[in-house]
Computed example of a mutant assay.
Amino acid sequence: MSEVLSKNEESIKIEKIVKFHRSFDDMNQSQREDWLKEMGDINIEHFFKANQRVFDEDGPRERSIPRRDFFLDVIKNRVKSDPLLQPKGHPVTNYLQENIVIRELCNKIQAAFDAQDFSTYNMTLMFLKELAKIHTHYLRKEDQLFPYLEKHDFTYPSTGMWKFQDEIRANLKMVTKAVEAKEVNEEMATLLKDVVQDVFDMTTREEKMLLPTAVKLLSNDEWQKMSKEEKEIGYVFIQNPPLWPEDTSKKADMASSLGAIFLQEGALSQEQLNLFFSALPFDVTFVDENDRVAFFNKGSERTFLRSPGVIGREVKFCHPPKSVDTVLKILEAFKDGSKDTAEFWITFGGRLIHIRYFALRDESKKYKGVIELTQDITDIKNIEGERRLLDWA
């Protein structure tokens, strides 16, 4: 009986949070404060379940500043969760250690800029460029943590938080450029303060909501897999953390048990296939007919980083929110047979990148998936004349 009551009470709490989300914009500050008093402390599970439900049923919404600030305060002071106590090298511990440095950088930037001294421009610029490395921290979340959360139906971070992180990255580039040019007007000064505060507040969202929720949802086995995958993207602001859990097992030699894989013409061993794809001068990603990532090659220098955590992930969660609609449009056209290819070219990191999509169809023309090829064509585009002789100079 007590278990039934507990589940009923949980449903009531979640329903109250859902209703509050939906009526927030129609309430005045006094009504919002009354709701807080009525709710008291909010359990992390109630909070993330309510947020996910609103996201599933209502879709993403534009966050006003009052809404953003109010719910950030709720996350800071009202949502209760267990302490994030994990061993050294655990993915959660790695995020927490990086956050310590991130907050220190935010404080240094704000202090340097507040000094309003010309000599502090260089210092502010130095700290901003260092803070821009936060991209790696966010990338681990987007390519590794989010895919595991999606498997437990917690999909809000893959769109809502990712979109916010894209905004932070874009604004950091903008203010860094302005500081570098010593052209910081009143509007840009406000943006600088806002983006630094956004970065700082993101660490709070991680430690008070995202990571406690992840600890609740993910199994120890999932955390161990994530720990092995993290090194694919790397770390920022911290040295390579110790291996967790410590691997004392010896890898068995499987080479002798590997047979040939027969292809259209000829056959290759698994080792040969891996070497073949690793040597290709472009990135290959295969998404199956169910829109899930099934394969990507691991060349020595990929244009866009990939983590093993994306395998099995829905492709709509593998792209920044601003480009998802384009990806889905391509898939729809491939599936209905109206298109077989799509291509784009962009400037990324000062290089010209050519991105192509090819629909895969079987003998009966049934759609079986899509291949994405990404290639740095900067040097190819600059080729002129002819080279007919071997030149290794």
Rank of each mutant, 00 (worst) to 15 (best):
L36E: 02
D34L: 04
I17G: 02
E33W: 03
F24S: 00
F48R: 08
R32E: 04
I17M: 04
Q29E: 11
N43P: 13
I17A: 02
N51S: 14
H46T: 02
Q52T: 08
H21M: 06
K37M: 08
N51Y: 09
E15D: 12
G40V: 00
E38T: 08
H21T: 04
K16L: 13
S30N: 04
E45F: 11
Q31P: 08
I17R: 00
Q52D: 12
D25H: 12
F20M: 05
E15L: 12
K16A: 12
I14R: 02
K49V: 13
S23A: 08
I14K: 02
H21D: 06
R32S: 06
N43Q: 14
F47L: 14
F47V: 05
N43R: 15
H21E: 08
M39P: 01
R53A: 13
I17H: 01
E15K: 09
V18E: 09
S30G: 07
M39T: 01
Q31Y: 02
A50R: 00
V18Q: 07
R32V: 04
D34Q: 06
A50W: 01
I14M: 03
V18F: 12
N43I: 09
R22G: 13
I42W: 02
Q52L: 06
Q29Y: 09
K49I: 14
H21N: 07
M27Y: 04
L36V: 01
N51R: 15
F47Q: 09
S30Q: 05
K19V: 12
E33A: 05
H46M: 01
K13Q: 13
R53S: 13
Q29P: 03
K37G: 06
K37D: 11
K19S: 15
F24C: 00
H46Y: 02
D26F: 10
E33K: 06
M39H: 05
K16G: 11
I17Q: 00
D41W: 07
D25C: 06
D25L: 08
F20T: 01
E15C: 13
M39Q: 04
K49T: 14
A50I: 01
E15G: 11
E45T: 15
W35T: 00
R32W: 06
Q52F: 06
R32M: 07
E38L: 09
H21R: 10
S30L: 08
N51P: 09
K13D: 13
R22L: 12
F20Y: 05
I44K: 13
N43W: 11
R32P: 04
S30A: 12
F20P: 00
K16P: 09
K19T: 15
R32Y: 03
S23H: 09
F20N: 00
K19H: 13
K16S: 12
E15I: 05
M27C: 04
D41M: 11
E38W: 12
K16I: 10
S23F: 10
R22C: 10
R53H: 14
R53N: 14
F24V: 00
D26I: 10
N28I: 05
D41N: 13
M27F: 07
E33F: 04
K19G: 14
S23E: 11
Q31D: 08
I44A: 15
F20A: 02
I42L: 05
E38C: 07
E33L: 05
K37S: 08
N28P: 06
E38F: 07
F47Y: 15
E15H: 10
G40A: 04
K16Y: 14
F48S: 10
G40Y: 03
K49Y: 14
D26T: 10
K16V: 10
H46V: 00
R32F: 03
